[in-house]
Every structure is written in structure tokens, then in C-alpha cells.
Amino acid sequence: MAKYLLKRLLQSLVVLVVVSAVIFFTVRLSPSDPIASITKGKTVTAQVREDLLRRFNLDKSPIQQYYLWIGGMLKGDFGESYQYRQPVSLLVSQRVKTTVQLAALSTVLAILIAVPLGIVLAVKANSFTDKALSIISLVFVASPTFLIGVIFMLVFALRLKWFPSMGTGSFRHLVLPSCAMAINMVALTSRITRQSMIEELSSDYITAAYAKGVGPLRIIFIHALRNAVIPVITITSLQIGGMLVGAVLVETVFAMGGLGDLLISSIKSSDYPVVQGVTMMMIVVYCALSVVVDTLYAIIDPRIRLQ
């Protein structure tokens, strides 16, 4: 098991190194002048320009800049934002809470709704309930989070006045954005749960269990669900990763100022250090998630470990 984990960690490290280089050099393909981003297009003297170039290491070659960036990150220094002139780590630490809360709450919401729903749909496969709910979930899968967010805001904030329309600060502020994000996830996760439950329920070992006189609840929850849960975990982990990006839209709609919002505003203003820092952190989270999920598989299904 330890050997398996070590292998996965090493793989992730390689991914991180490659990705860091890709991010660093892709960001620099932008034709805009970094000094213009730093000074917001205002005219500055040649001396100020020179000082800024030095301060942000822009007077060095891209390769040197890359080494400085990597070296800094290993020491916990992610550089200084062009637009705010403050440490990237400070900006990120201010923002990360909102995004984590949003992702966590919507994941919990989604799992709590999706898994039981999927089981019900599988047990009642091809009934009217199944078909009706399948159509509804198809609509939700297809709806962009952005749109759901706006609709929620117009209905539950503006019309019904149940929740604030924007901002952060209390649990009430989180409800609408989390639900908007969860809906998409519920739809997909419940479909996957249903699918794999149907497969398991029609397997021979289930028939055998029935023949042995095992009760239906025990068959569904103990035998079938255990085996059906692997694809569900896969899709959930992928979705949590995707949520960091999906959160961008919801954070923007509800003016929550999370990590995604920071990324978008930095891209718009060519704030390289922030774009690099945030993207790197997202990749680290993604890699960490996939290691965790692979480990979970191994715990659940020993066959994976042996391969």
C-alpha cells in the first residue's frame, strides 16, 4: 500500500513540474506589456519603469524568471501581485475560505441528495418516477451553473427575499450559490449512481444473495452499493476538481470574491504572478484529490492495489 502511494505521489510531482512550466510560459504568450498592467496604463517615467522591471524580475530572461518563481514557491513565496502590489499568498489566503466553503457545502449537499436519489431510481428502474426524474436531471445536467445562479438570485433573493442577493459573511450568503453549484452535480452523480446500481443489482451474486434469503435492504445497501460506489467516487472527485473552476462562475454571479474570481480578474489584468500562483494551487489540489481518490479505490477494492 505504501509503495502504491509513493508511486502515485511521484507521478503527481512529475505532473506538477511539467504543468508549472506550461503555465509559466503560456502566461507569457500574452502580447500585453506587464508594466502597463502594473501601472494600469498610466504614464510613468523611465526611471519608474526600470525600477518596476527590476522589482518584478522582468529585466531577467524568462528562464531565470521561471527558476526564481519555482525557488520562491518552495520557500512559500508566491511573488507579488502586479495589480495589488501585495503578496500573492496574502491575496489567496483571503480568498480561499470562500471557495473551500462553497465547494465543501455543495459537495455535501450534492452527495446527500444524489446517492439516495440514484438508489431509488435504480430500484424503481424504468418506472414512471424513474423516467420523470431522469428527464428533470437531464435538464439540470445541461443547465450552465451561471444560468442557475442568476435564476436562483432573481427568484429567491429578488422576488421572495429569502436570501441576500450577493456577498459573503454568513451561512445565508452561502445557500444560494452552493445550491446552484450542487444542482449540476446532483444531476450527474445521481445518474451515475443509478447506472452502476442497476448493473450491480442485475449481477449473479445479487441473485445468489436473494436465493440465500438475504433481505432486500441488506442487498441494496450492503452488497450492491458497496460495489456501485466506485464510479460514484470517481465522478465526485472529478467534480470537486471541476468545482474550483465552476466556482468561478458562481462566485462572480454572487459577488463572493473567491479564488476563482481572483483568477478571472487577474487574467483580465494580466496579473501574471497571481494567475500562476492560483493555477498552480488548483493543480496541486487536483493532484492531491486524485491521489486521495486512488487511495480510496485501493481501500475499497483490493484488486486495484494488486494491479
Binding site: 438570485m153 432573481l154 433573493a157 442577493s165 450577493m166 456577498g167 462572480t252 454571479v253 459577488a255 470574491g257
Partner: peptide, 18 residues
């Protein structure tokens, strides 16, 4: 001071009293 970059949200915020 609240930063509301999204235009629809900015309008909804004042309509909603936020």
C-alpha cells in the same frame, strides 16, 4: 464598500437592498 463585478448582480443588489 462592496465589490460587485457582475452587472446583473450589481443591479439586483441595489434592488434587493443589499
Amino acid at each position: 464598500f462592496k465589490v460587485i463585478a457582475e452587472e446583473t448582480t450589481r443591479v439586483a443588489a441595489i434592488q434587493n437592498g443589499d
